[in-house]
């Protein structure tokens, strides 16, 4: 049973015809050709498909299109137009976070949603918001560093990893 939905995606009205239970990820990738959002696991276990619904991070692979209603969906294609989105993407380039890059759209969406809620997140908040986003290249230290850079504007904001000499005396080289 298919229905027609008028969705608000990246501040554009888009009309799709789909079964109400179709995951938003399929709608984005297959019906609207917004392929920046990636398919990873399909069961909300990896975070590759993360998008925003009204600024909050959601796994689009388990979000039925019928439940979206009038909510504003933002994808990786448009998140750079927001202040936090731009900050995070710049930090991502500065730190050179990406390795293979497959999970990165999801990582960036999760990071932006975190900064939307907490402009200066504590470590435990970064863990709580980002642990559901897997990166099989293991870029986690750089993801954390980039989030701190985006939040504070400082590259040495991160205490959990030593990258060269630090001005902070609490962090010592082995």
């Amino acid at each position: 049973m298919r229905s027609t939905f008028t969705l608000n995606i990246n501040d554009e009205r888009r009309t799709v015809t789909a079964p109400p239970r179709m995951p938003m990820l399929w709608v984005l990738r297959d019906l609207l050709a917004l392929t920046g959002t990636k398919y990873g696991c399909g069961i909300a276990q990896c975070g590759a498909c993360t998008v925003h619904l009204d600024g909050k991070a959601l796994r689009s692979c388990v979000l039925p299109v019928g439940d979206v209603g009038d909510g504003h969906i933002t994808t990786i294609e448009a998140v750079g137009r927001t202040d936090n989105g731009e900050k995070v993407q710049r930090a991502w380039m500065e730190i050179e976070v990406a390795q293979c890059g497959y999970c990165q759209p999801g990582q960036i969406m999760a990071a932006v949603a975190l900064l939307n809620e907490r402009p200066a997140p504590a470590d435990f908040e970064i863990d709580a918001a980002m642990s559901g986003n897997l990166c099989r290249c293991g870029t986690y230290p750089r993801i954390r560093e980039a989030i701190k850079l985006a939040a504070t504007g400082k590259t040495d904001a991160m205490r959990t990893l030593v990258i060269g000499p630090s001005a902070d005396s609490e962090v010592k080289e082995p």
């Binding site: 909300a44 276990q45 975070g47 991070a57 959601l58 796994r59 388990v62 979000l63 039925p64 439940d67 709580a128 642990s131 559901g132």
Partner: peptide
């Protein structure tokens, strides 16, 4: 494993 669907406030995220 749990937070991305159930939410930290237990409100349910996607569903």
């Amino acid at each position: 494993n749990c937070a991305s669907c159930h939410g930290w406030n237990g409100g349910g995220v996607q569903q």
